[in-house]
Design a protein around this nucleic acid. Structure first.
Lengths: 213, 213
DNA sequence: AAAAAAATACCCCTTTCGGGGTATTGCGAG
DNA sequence: CTCGCAATACCCCGAAAGGGGTATTTTTTT
């Protein structure tokens, strides 16, 4: 009996990258790309219209972040596999993806073999989290216990401060702007760094830009 | 008489982007992709082996910079057209490419029409330098004298260092990476800040991301 | 050959960051 | 009514960054 090819929907605002993926996938007889979406807002309707089996979702799609979108997809469509695809080699994001129940996390610069391997693994009902994502924090050596839970659960204040740091303000300017003590800003900043697993401004600015904060 | 399709070699360390390009080019009956290279070091041998008519070369290939590699190709193989392809919307790089005698400079986010147009123009023996690269030379309204002239005339070393800062390296790591004294890196950084009219890392990271460096 | 620009390197000094703490208040879920 | 968490604020200290110089060597341009 002839099996229908598996339907895959691409969600990514990088046109040419999508095309590359599409041509790769189309070489596979058992896979077919049923659509491409370039804006987060159009993702849900596209899913309704194209009924994909698998959604390939870029973490850093403008508007929302891809992980939240992935979660929304999971919540609203049962049976759909969701695979994050990203340039961002960031363990915290991988963990967050896993925590929210997404089915996998792939790096864009993985080899095509690994890409296909990941996709097929996820389609088979398993999860696939790219082993090349460097886990700088093996979940051992944790003095407290709920470190993990705190990770990436940014509070409103923290997101607000991330945005200001991204704009180039220093601690003092941020303190003035939102009427806080500079010490409080420093505390927030420390917590942010901790949650994101980073340790300097440049990392934060990249993170913020890539996630549209 | 049936013409052989023109042979094109892709040099770019971004696998999937290459694939996207390849699928685009393969739709054209008169063009064929004769190979892909992902490392600068393999470029010359690949050219010998595949005898391309045109080389599409990414500026930002790891190891060397693409422009130097382009020059090397021109010096070693006569008759080959060399077209730079890059995300860097940076007039200085474009100028440098032109100065060294490369045949064109295309932006990766150009439309597919423009891409093909550029490729065909270069193949026809002309040069094609993307008109969308913003050439900002406002030599007017300069209160001082050469302040403005220095602005944004980034040298290669500077662009290189911007990229590393953007990646999150600190002065020491940069110094190690490109074998410089940390003091020299600091000097370059100061010059960069001066030229860009900024004064901190966060500004630089934003600048770099916005300009695709 | 001379001038200009790029790349290299060092000094000094101040400000800001980053990382380690601790502590208080107030609110909302259990 | 507590327990947990968010938000607030402070202390200390070492490491980097930022800003001001000057200077030498190469490379490129004129």
């Amino acid at each position: 009996m002839l099996q229908q090819p598996t339907r895959i929907l691409l969600i990514d605002d990088h046109q040419l990258f999508n095309d590359g993926l599409q041509s790769l996938l189309n070489e596979q007889p058992d896979l077919t790309v049923c659509g491409q979406v370039f804006q987060a807002g159009k993702a849900l309707t596209a899913i309704q219209q194209t009924s994909p089996n698998l959604v390939l979702l870029d973490v850093n799609i403008q508007g929302t972040n891809g992980i939240d979108l992935g979660k929304t997809i999971l919540d609203n469509f049962s049976g759909i596999r969701v695979l994050m695809l990203t340039m961002y080699n960031h363990p915290k994001l991988l963990d967050e993806a896993r925590r929210l129940g997404l089915h996998g996390y792939l790096l864009k610069d993985a080899s095509t073999t690994d890409l296909l391997n990941g996709i097929r693994t996820v389609l088979a009902g398993n999860t696939y989290f790219d082993p090349n994502v460097t886990h700088s924090h093996p979940p051992a050596n944790d003095p407290f216990g709920d470190d993990f839970a705190r990770r990436l659960n940014l509070t409103f204040r923290e997101v607000e401060i991330i945005a200001l740091i991204r704009e180039g303000l220093n601690n003092e300017q941020i303190a003035d702007r939102i009427h806080l003590s500079i010490e409080t800003v420093k505390t927030h900043r420390k917590n942010i760094y901790f949650k994101l697993g980073i340790n300097k401004v440049s990392d934060l600015v990249r993170f913020a830009i890539e996630h549209g904060i």
